[in-house]
């Protein structure tokens, strides 16, 4: 399997994991290990003054794992820049999953603010991985703004609906000059495999693993699916029978070439 390279850094795994919604940090840590992932997202929150809770960071911090802080909770570009600076300070990485979703119901990304924030953050030296709509033109603009990847959504976050935006993701993959990471909505290993077969560079999965009956086993299943999908893509998939092959012999269009 070809290595994935983002901003000059190599990744052996093409599965990115979100750290949300696990029933315990212990299970999260086991799932991370089972998934073989080398990139894990995390969020930020304000500390409680009488904080006694378990530090989640120590469960994901590992030499092989790139931390990917997100900007979840921000509503515009300025808030995103502030959050990014806080994340860089707190976690010692300039990598950032940029997500701006002012809409609390579906958590759909704000394209205008995401593009603005990408431009600003790239100038401030961040490696920006923007979560975005499966919008091919927006993805090109994000790339021009200096995004390290584009991360179009497959379906609304947490819905497990799979590749609802398939045709747009296909176009994005065809056009992109940076890795395309399919983010949000992937609900089953078959969805991830399908995205990888299409040529996606990686998948980011969270809910489908963290709320599975057995998250650790599910993490393993996703690992295998992502690898299988990638391998299939690199091997060149066979032809699917289509109408393209049907020729009508009645009045050949190319008869003039035999005259």
């Amino acid at each position: 399997m070809e290595k994935l390279v983002i901003a000059g850094k190599e990744f052996g795994s093409r599965l990115f994991l979100g750290s949300g919604k696990f029933s315990s940090n212990q299970i999260m840590e086991e799932a991370i290990k089972a998934s073989g992932t080398e990139m894990v997202t995390l969020a930020m929150k304000r500390i409680e003054l009488d904080d006694k809770e378990d530090d989640m960071l120590k469960h994901i911090a590992h030499p092989n794992i790139q931390l990917l802080p997100n900007t979840s909770g921000v509503r515009d570009a300025d808030e995103a820049v502030f959050a990014a600076q806080m994340a860089r300070e707190a976690f010692g990485t300039n990598w950032l999953k940029l997500e701006i979703h002012p809409d609390p119901r579906y958590l759909l990304p704000d394209s205008v603010e995401t593009l603005k924030a990408t431009e600003k953050l790239v100038k401030l030296g961040f490696v920006v991985l923007p979560y975005c709509q499966a919008d091919p033109v927006l993805c090109r603009q994000l790339e021009e703004a200096g995004a390290a990847t584009v991360m179009p959504l497959a379906a609304p976050i947490g819905t497990n609906k799979g590749l609802e935006t398939k045709e747009f993701i296909r176009i994005i993959i065809e056009q992109a000059g940076v890795p395309v990471v399919v983010d949000a909505g992937i609900g089953a290993p078959s969805h991830a495999a399908e995205a990888m077969e299409m040529g996606a560079s990686a998948c980011l999965v969270n809910t489908a693993i963290s709320v599975a009956g057995n998250p650790v086993e599910m993490a393993k299943a996703f690992k295998m699916a992502v690898e299988a999908g990638r391998m299939a893509y690199e091997s060149g998939l066979g032809a699917v029978a289509t109408n393209n092959m049907v020729a009508s012999a009645s009045s050949p269009l190319t008869a003039f070439l035999n005259e």
Binding site: R170, G238, A239, T242, N244, M245, A247, T254
Partner: peptide
């Protein structure tokens, strides 16, 4: 394979341009 795809890459293009595609001229025209 190239003919069955809805979107071809350069490898597919090579196949369509190659002598191997000559028998498929009519399908290609359609």
């Amino acid at each position: 394979r190239a003919l069955a795809k809805s979107h071809c890459d350069v490898e597919d293009f090579m196949a369509l341009l190659s002598p191997a595609a000559e028998p498929y001229l009519e399908q290609m025209a359609q």
